[in-house]
């Protein structure tokens, strides 16, 4: 039997990989992908705890997280299209109009 802690460690590692991607990449689509990786890291932990504590609330929460992730991806990608239409780039360092 696999102990619950292993799933929690895996979840923490995946979350931190996603966070590293979010704060270091300059491409906005990869930043959105990193957010999805972070969501998945949290989901692993929730499903594992739901299984080991014998309570289904964690899996219901995962269902809601997936719904919110879908909404977030749709809005985020619409913003990316809008950004590309106006600026011809999706590199965040080039989008510095407010910088004085």
């Amino acid at each position: 039997m696999v102990p619950c802690n292993w799933y929690m460690w895996l979840s923490a590692i995946v979350f931190c990989i996603g966070m590293f991607g979010f704060i270091t990449r300059r491409n906005i689509i990869i930043m959105l992908l990193s957010i999805e990786i972070m969501f998945n890291g949290v989901n692993i932990s929730l499903v594992a705890l739901s299984h080991y504590l014998e309570d289904l609330a964690g899996q219901v929460l995962v269902f809601f997280i997936i719904a919110v992730a879908a909404a977030e991806a749709a809005i985020g990608l619409a913003l990316v299209i809008l950004l590309f239409r106006n600026k011809e780039t999706i590199t965040v360092d080039d989008l510095n109009e407010l910088k004085g």
């Binding site: 998945n40 499903v47 739901s50 299984h51 995962v62 997936i66 879908a70 990608l77």
Partner: peptide
């Protein structure tokens, strides 16, 4: 982890819908 329904939703929504959107 005995979560068949969540597993199916993961494949349908994440792999099937969100990644196709990307």
């Amino acid at each position: 982890l005995n979560a068949e329904f969540i597993s199916a939703v993961q494949i349908i929504v994440y792999a099937g819908a969100i990644m196709v959107l990307f």
